[in-house]
């Protein structure tokens, strides 16, 4: 039932963050079409290992599309040729025998390459640390049902909260902008009653940190939305702009330095 194929991979190899990288051509032979893309790389790595050569390093963990660790640009598309999935959910039936596949890491100044195809995404963590939370300590919370949230709002907040932080938005954006990622978190809290207290401080703090990390500026091409494996919408960015500009232009006094 399953067809087998031979592929030529052009893979970015780079020893570490200090060295210069280059493309290396590797053959992937006898690949079954029901393998996942990462399993194909496993097989390539297995062969490299048997030959005593350094296997290709790539980030991956859960392999079920939720941890956000896998991060490959495949033939010019983050997470490969299909929409709405992560690299680990991509299967080889999306490719054909004899095909050449170019595999690159996420490219952004704020995502330096660590080795081969793995990049450092701690800039995302620092943006979240700047304000992606509500200021509640453990223990003091009121009964959960004391906060009524209309289903429509809860659902919309969920749609924003479903971001997995993979960075495909940055990778897809021609400007390497992180606005879809940042706006998803700002939106989640802007929508929910629990997020109102620090609403305007949060927008300013997170945008400032995003800018400080060296991400590019959004030009509304929509590439991020198209490539997001979780379907985070551009309306989040509009909301972030509203929150941020509203805070800046009308509420600056709210910041305490």
């Amino acid at each position: 039932m399953s067809a087998h194929m031979n592929l030529t991979l052009k893979v970015w190899r780079q020893k570490n963050d200090k060295s210069k990288g280059q493309f290396v051509t590797v053959q992937a032979n006898d690949i079954a079409d029901d393998m996942s893309f990462l399993e194909m790389l496993d097989i390539v790595n297995d062969e490299l290992t048997r030959k005593g050569e350094d296997p290709i390093y790539f980030d991956h963990d859960c392999r079920e599309g939720i941890c956000g660790m896998c991060s490959l640009v495949i033939n010019g598309r983050p997470h490969g040729p299909k929409y709405g999935i992560t690299t680990c959910q991509l299967h080889m039936r999306s490719f054909h025998d004899g095909q050449t596949i170019v595999i690159e890491p996420w490219r952004a100044a704020a995502f330096p390459v660590l080795k081969d195809l793995a990049v450092d995404r701690t800039s995302f963590d620092r943006i979240q640390q700047a304000g992606g939370y509500t200021n509640v300590n453990t223990g003091g919370a009121q009964d959960a049902n004391n906060i009524l949230i209309p289903k429509r709002i809860a659902d919309e907040a969920f749609e924003s909260a479903t971001c997995i932080g993979c960075g495909a938005c940055v990778a897809a954006c021609k400007n390497a902008s992180a606005m879809l990622f940042v706006s998803a978190k700002i939106s989640q809290f802007a929508l929910l009653p629990q997020g109102q207290t620090e609403r305007y401080e949060r927008a300013q703090a997170m945008v400032d940190q995003m800018d400080a990390e060296g991400f590019g500026n959004c030009t509304n091409t929509g590439a991020c939305e198209a490539e997001c494996p979780k379907g985070i919408k551009l309306t989040n960015i509009a909301r972030m702009n509203r929150e941020y500009l509203g805070a800046k232009l009308f509420r600056e006094e709210d910041i305490h330095g």
């Binding site: 052009k10 970015w12 493309f23 640009v73 033939n75 010019g76 598309r77 040729p81 170019v102 690159e104 490219r107 952004a108 100044a109 704020a110 897809a172 021609k174 400007n175 390497a176 902008s177 060296g214 991400f215 590019g216 500026n217 030009t219 091409t221 929509g222 590439a223 198209a226 490539e227």
Partner: peptide, 18 residues
């Protein structure tokens, strides 16, 4: 924006998403 991506992609399929 240029500075935000100092090393570009060898293969970039922008038409697929924008």
């Amino acid at each position: 924006n240029k500075a935000a991506r100092p090393i570009g992609y060898a293969s970039y399929d922008g038409s697929a998403n924008s």
